[in-house]
Amino acid sequence: MATVAAGAARGRRLRYVTERRGFLASFLISPAVLFIGLLVGGPLVLAIYLSFTHATAGSLSGKSAGFSNFTNLIHNTLFRQAVWNTFIFTVISQLVVLLVAGVLAHALVRSFRGRWGFRFLVLLPWAAPVALTTTGFLWFFDPLASIFNWFLIHLGIVSEATKPNWIGTHTDAMASIITVHAWRIIPFATVIFLAGISSIPAEVDDAAAIDGATGLRKFWYVSLPLQLPIAIVAVLFGIVFTATDMAVVYILTNGNAGTDVLTTFAFKTGIESGSTGEGAAVTLFMLPVLAVVAIGMLFFAKRAEVT
């Protein structure tokens, strides 16, 4: 009898506790927060710690290195090229994305026959796993059987002797990597732009028409300012996806022909050569980019209201 009563009391108490907003909230949130803290926060702190040590493969600590990992890197010309490449790949590919996705979204927003099918085809490059599609490009860029060269030769743009060596020479390889990045981000940016355009209420269009705004003027003064915040959010995501990606460069060129980026440089230093400390220092150079993107995201996402 006593245990039953105690059990009922405990049940009541439990019920009372779960009725309190604050308790229930922390009860539901804390497992996720703990997990994220452990698996994102922990390694992030560890990366910062490791970058100040001479840690090598297999150990979680090492002799203190002070700032030497960082100063060595800054004086390493290969590292400087990796920083520059990361910058170039990100900026140029995102400019291409902005242009193509902007035009494509404005065309796709109109209703026409077969829109679903087109949307499916447009989405393919984004939905397919990046490591796999990049492997596909390795075949399209094949020095002997490149299908792109077949088109270029048959269109008379290049000859058999002057055809590009897509992943062999520095300039061509840089262009190839930018192409693959732009190709896979365009669908993502297009669908987000599309959401931005369709979220503009019809009343705005009507009001602009009544006030006599048409064509380019309407686009410049009415549509563009309304679409801009969401377009910027899409581009900020694109920057993160490009600057922090390793698969494209690692699979396409493995950093050969002077195409290393921060991520491949870190992988080669930290995993393949086993210099964990120095590799960790390389990855930290991504933090400024991420910080800028995060601030931009917080600033613009509130303005980009899409339903």
């Binding site: 390694p43 490791l50 990855t283 933090l287 991420l290 993107v293």
Partner: peptide, 21 residues
């Protein structure tokens, strides 16, 4: 918002310490 920001932290930043763990 804080949780969303952790989504921006890429695997390429965490793989070295995690591989040790």
């Amino acid at each position: 918002v804080a949780i969303f920001l952790t989504y921006l932290v890429p695997p390429t930043l965490l793989f070295l310490p995690l591989s040790r763990v």
